[in-house]
Design a protein around this nucleic acid. Structure first.
Lengths: 135, 135
DNA sequence: TTTACAAAACGTAATCATTACGATATAATA
DNA sequence: TATTATATCGTAATGATTACGTTTTGTAAA
């Protein structure tokens, strides 16, 4: 997913182009790691004085809904990153800087029969620690 | 972990016995599933009129610290349950009632070499859905 | 037993992330 | 260019959690 594809997707779905939306997407493209709403706000404020919480959160949720961003939760704060386009995988996440590394092993493959009676909707496998730069 | 063991542990570590603490522990023993601070508060209020947030949260955190409770986060709300005493495992968690089922497969066993350069501190593997009673 | 004191609890306010909303501005398109 | 639905602003509300000065209470020493 790059900026152009994301903007194209917005257009297809009937959402309007705005400079702020482009800026938001570019932010996540260039960061390529988990960032919070606050991080995004701080990045936008110098360029867009008085930008509203509403704009930040409404668009973050829109982008998640359109599969432009993916989201996780780290000690009480939602974190967002550009959606990894390719096949299903999980992440190592650096607790300091939010950098991720893909883990190409999904534990769900081995546990279907343990949960016969249960309706599985979702799963989360994340590894937390420090990346080479932060450790 | 049962009520007696938990109270013993508090005593050993120099924490005082209070009726409220016993009540809190008994609540989690009898529930045996993930419950929120609010759930606990609602359970305590009839017996202890005017019980404070401070008491609820301070003790929840104390119990987590002493390994009496374990904790996870479900859409922005911390959830607590009695610590499962036995060997390392993960959980299926029912989104409706918080009931859990142990998963005896840990994905960490198979991925050490993928993360040579990274300092691993923690991991989370949880499956979400609906239990037989709630689905 | 009283007394002394640290720990616990109360009552309530503050904080932090997030959501909500009426008023205004703006992108799309007729 | 005029119209209209969508986006944004400005700010208040919400909900979970944390903080704190004051009061109460377990505990253990006198």
């Amino acid at each position: 997913m790059n900026t152009k594809e994301a903007l194209q997707l917005l257009k297809e779905k009937g959402y309007k182009y705005t400079e702020k939306r482009e800026h938001m997407i570019e932010y996540f493209v260039s960061e390529n790691r988990y960032r919070s709403a606050k991080d995004l706000l701080e990045n936008m404020e110098p360029s867009y004085d008085g930008i509203s919480f509403d704009t930040i959160y409404r668009n973050l949720h829109l982008f998640v809904q359109l599969d432009i961003l993916e989201t996780t939760e780290l000690n009480g704060e939602k974190q967002f990153r550009l959606k990894c386009a390719h096949s299903h995988h999980h992440h190592f996440i650096c607790k300091t800087c939010g950098v991720t590394k893909e883990i190409h092993h999904c534990p769900m493959e081995q546990i279907s029969e343990e949960l016969q009676q249960f309706m599985i909707e979702d799963h989360k496998f994340e590894i937390y620690g420090f990346c080479p730069a932060c450790k």
